[in-house]
Design a protein around this nucleic acid. Structure first.
Lengths: 244, 244
DNA sequence: GAGTGGTCTAGACCACTTG
DNA sequence: AAGTGGTCTAGACCACTCT
């Protein structure tokens, strides 16, 4: 583990434990550098992480201030339904609705950055927390990933684990988030009314070299889940689009 | 403007202009350092911005790769409806539904980090793009901000401009995004059906020192707007919550 | 083995706040 | 005026990719 990552984690723990209260000031960079026995640059790297996560506010000339003790979820927890479920103390499960291997549609060719005629695995799963239906996941995998997928694995739990076990690394993702009305199938599976509001997240995940590993459309029952996003003037990872 | 910011902007322009195609590799850090006449550290600062915005993928040992030419919106565009509207070539307008000054509710005291009994300005506005209703904005301002707000300013355009003109700086924000069904008032104002799905973004904005400047609940017509969020294993600004 | 990005250090100067 | 964070430099070593 990198030094700056370790420092950041320790600072975050200290905030969570109340050593530094929300609203209070933090020690200066030079003091922390001395305390941890690292250079000022390493302390700054650590703070860059905390600022991005919205834990700390920074302004020139003044000490940094704690603004929240939000323990941001790891990228892994955001990516894997199973991991996330366990982290909040719920029991995740999945029910395979459809699993097929077929030529990619034009849209999928674009999404997965394939060539025309390439095969994809397409999986529709209902995801449950403590046996309550929460989300419908419709995911397209390029063939090289898809061939790792079996119906039994999809039923029992985490495909993410399965895929990572074969050496694929999920490194970055983009999410397009909007609201839609439930279709007949959505309503039946999620046990909500027809046309009920659903939170939709269309996700595309890449490995460290930028190759697309999956493209998914997730639909959450409206009262089940929300997303929290933090952004700042320095680093902004969020934008707003007209979808029409 | 900081050197690394300038380098990042130039790289982004180069990608947008096709100098570096999506999918292709970028020059090495040392080559860019020489070309721009800066140190390697500055080039790395520039790339940190581009990686956070999802323009570039990075992995140890290999050259960086261009993964998208998404021109991420600035923090300002994300924050100001007026600025955003103009940036996409639409004409923004606003209609004040309610504007009141009153003691903060318990929830608002928490949201705005006030003390019990403090006053807030509460503004409900319908926002339109090219005269089409798109969003309802219900915003609470602490008194020191709210006293800058007049009904005429709220009608004519950007309160953000108004507030910034008085020296307040919007530095960071957190957004909780989910889906809700339209209430009777929502439906009437947005001209959608009762119980139509709406995309809801609850936003809290802070100044550089961490003070809360506003707390807002925005409801978008489902087919009007979507949010795009980019995240990565290194820096993750997004998380998923059970809202129940 | 050469090249590249990831990490860390030490030091310098500046802009800003008031610890 | 002192302290603090923001920026930039130069150099070092390591882990990893690539051919």
């Amino acid at each position: 583990m990198a030094l700056h990552r370790r420092v950041a984690d320790e600072m975050k723990s200290a905030v969570a434990e109340g050593v530094y209260a929300v609203g209070s000031s933090l020690p200066s960079e030079s003091e922390l550098a001395q305390r941890y026995g690292v250079s000022r640059g390493t302390i700054r790297q650590a703070f860059a992480l905390l600022v991005a996560e919205g834990v700390v506010a920074s302004r020139q000339g003044a000490r940094r201030v704690v603004v929240a003790d939000t323990r941001t979820q790891s990228f892994g927890q955001l990516h894997s339904f199973s991991l996330w479920a366990r982290s909040i103390g719920a029991v995740p499960s999945g029910r395979v609705v459809r699993l097929e291997r077929r030529p990619a549609t034009a849209v999928e060719v674009g999404q997965l950055e394939l060539s025309a005629g390439d095969l994809v695995f397409f999986l529709t799963r209902l995801r449950l927390l403590d046996d309550l239906p929460v989300m419908i996941e419709r995911t397209a995998y390029p063939d090289r990933i898809g061939e790792l997928i079996t119906a039994t694995a999809a039923e029992s739990g985490s495909l993410t684990d399965q895929i990572e076990a074969h050496g694929f690394v999920f490194a970055q993702a983009e999410h397009v988030i909007d609201a839609v009305a439930a279709t007949a199938e959505d309503a039946r599976l999620l046990e909500v009314g027809r046309r009920a509001p659903l939170l939709r997240a269309r996700r595309r995940t890449r490995d460290p070299s930028g190759l697309v590993l999956e493209s998914s459309e997730d639909r959450y029952a409206a009262d089940a889940v929300a997303f929290l996003v933090h952004n700042s003037a320095e680093v902004n990872t969020m934008s707003r689009f007209t979808s029409s």
